[in-house]
Computed example of a mutant assay.
Amino acid sequence: MNILWDFDGTLFNTYPAYTEILYEILDQAVPKKDIHNHLKISFTHAVQYYGLSKEQVKRLFAMEQTIDPADTTPFPFVEDILKFADLNVIMTHKPRKDVEHILKYYDFEDYFTEIVAIDDGYPRKPDPASYIYLHHKYKIDLVIGDREIDIVPAKSIGIKTCLFQNSAPGADVYLSAYEKFFDLTCIAIND
């Protein structure tokens, strides 16, 4: 099975660290749960929803650079799936150096054949251009993401999808925890 992964909130639990940063930028005036929910839609959505200024966004990016990889842990059992897959690739809006830094910290870099990051010049999801590139190159069987914008491009080009910790309509498979992957996903992919 060849899997295309989203990064933030799918492979690694990065949202708590991002929530803390945005909480600080918003002067601790917004509940963390609300911030988390808006970040789960998309970073762009959260910036627009909270009306962040260019200076606040610049500060957010600067603070993001100080996050310790120890605060962005891989989800339980995700490594089992990475080992199981024939091939893993990543498509993320995160800068490549940040992705590589976290992968190296957890000794995960050898699990991935290719990383398409925001600095590679592809349009942001849900535009399917990066997915088309990766699918043509690797014949992707499954896309795993935690947000609707992660599965929309896959659906548009006929790839099976899995939403992780998200019940938005449209996915082929829904997982609340990766230990259930082998029970649910293999059945849905073979349909």
Rank of each mutant, 00 (worst) to 15 (best):
S167K: 15
N37A: 06
A154H: 05
L134H: 12
L60S: 11
Y49V: 00
I41F: 00
E20I: 00
I25T: 01
D191A: 14
M1A: 09
V78P: 04
F108H: 09
Y49W: 02
Y178I: 05
Y138M: 09
T161A: 10
F75M: 13
L52T: 03
E20A: 08
N37Q: 11
T92V: 04
K180Q: 12
A70R: 08
T14S: 13
A129N: 14
R147K: 15
C186H: 14
M91I: 14
P123G: 11
D110M: 08
I159C: 11
P76V: 10
K137T: 12
I118L: 13
K155M: 07
Y131L: 14
D107F: 10
D107S: 15
Q48G: 14
G145P: 08
E179R: 09
T66F: 14
I21H: 04
V116A: 13
F182H: 10
I187M: 09
T14D: 01
S130Q: 12
H38L: 02
F182V: 06
I21G: 06
D110A: 12
V30A: 03
N88Y: 06
E109P: 07
E79I: 03
M63N: 11
Y111A: 04
K32H: 03
Q48P: 05
E24I: 08
A154P: 02
Q48N: 12
M1I: 11
V89M: 15
K139C: 13
V152I: 15
P95C: 06
A85E: 05
D110T: 10
L52W: 04
F7Y: 01
P153N: 10
T92E: 09
E148C: 03
I21D: 04
I144N: 15
K32I: 00
R96T: 04
G170L: 03
K58M: 07
D27W: 07
L184G: 05
D191Y: 10
G121A: 10
H93V: 03
P169A: 15
M1G: 10
Y133F: 14
P153Q: 09
A17Y: 01
Y15N: 00
K160T: 08
I90V: 13
H38V: 00
P76D: 14
H93F: 07
I90P: 05
H93S: 13
